[in-house]
Design a binder for these strands. Structure first.
Lengths: 110, 110
DNA sequence: CTTTATTATCGTAATAATACGATAAAAGAA
DNA sequence: TTCTTTTATCGTATTATTACGATAATAAAG
């Protein structure tokens, strides 16, 4: 029955919800933190740091990549990921704007 | 097979992921925006504004309530919701801190 | 060329989220 | 009391997410 009804909402609301989805798993948060801590892009060191199977970590990396939050380059057998700071700043700004907007609208309530 | 492994992550990462979950559906974002626009708490006017069945909207309200982002009081047949600004500010701060932390760690990358 | 190490993808199973009709619950109106 | 309005909950169907073993793919090492 549940064909999703998300298309009935505004573009802005859908976009924000997509962004939020990136952060709904602690593994993806941990991956972003780990990547931000490194001077240089790492590869499968991430796998060692995340308490999940290699296949699962790879899947989370793929999701972060498809959202544009990280970039990955395959270098032979290894592959190398890093944060897409431009995108991350955009995302951060969108979330900040959302909360600011709520605050501004706020007039009086219970 | 997938018994969730979220308990293997840090408390902070899990907490942030729970917060993000509140925003992963455009209906919940729209509800928060709608509530913030009102001077007084409204009730089922939300249902009229959200393009989903009454039962579904009620379910989204319940989720926002269980996360503490909104408060609801039953007043006879009607019920009245409003934003919990204290909680919303906490959530907003946590997200801001997260992005700031990433930025601070950032040293050099590809 | 064969082996090894590293990562991505496939298949699949389990669980969570979404959506709504039907119905219950609650209190005011008739 | 009975009817009406409003909202919450239950049951259930569908879809999405999570998780991992197995396996493919890739390039360097031997």
């Amino acid at each position: 029955m549940p064909r999703t009804k998300k298309h009935l909402f505004s573009k802005a609301d859908v976009e924000l919800s997509e962004i939020a989805k990136a952060l709904t798993h602690p593994a993806r948060i941990a991956i972003l933190k780990e990547l931000s801590r490194r001077q240089e892009c790492i590869c499968g060191e991430i796998v060692d740091r995340i308490p999940l199977a290699q296949a699962t970590v790879s899947q989370h990396l793929k999701e972060l990549k498809s959202l544009g939050l990280i970039a990955g380059e395959i270098e032979g057998p290894k592959s190398c990921y890093c944060i897409n700071w431009k995108k991350l700043d955009e995302v951060s700004a969108l979330l900040r704007d959302f909360f600011d907007q709520l605050r501004t609208n706020h007039q009086r309530c219970c």
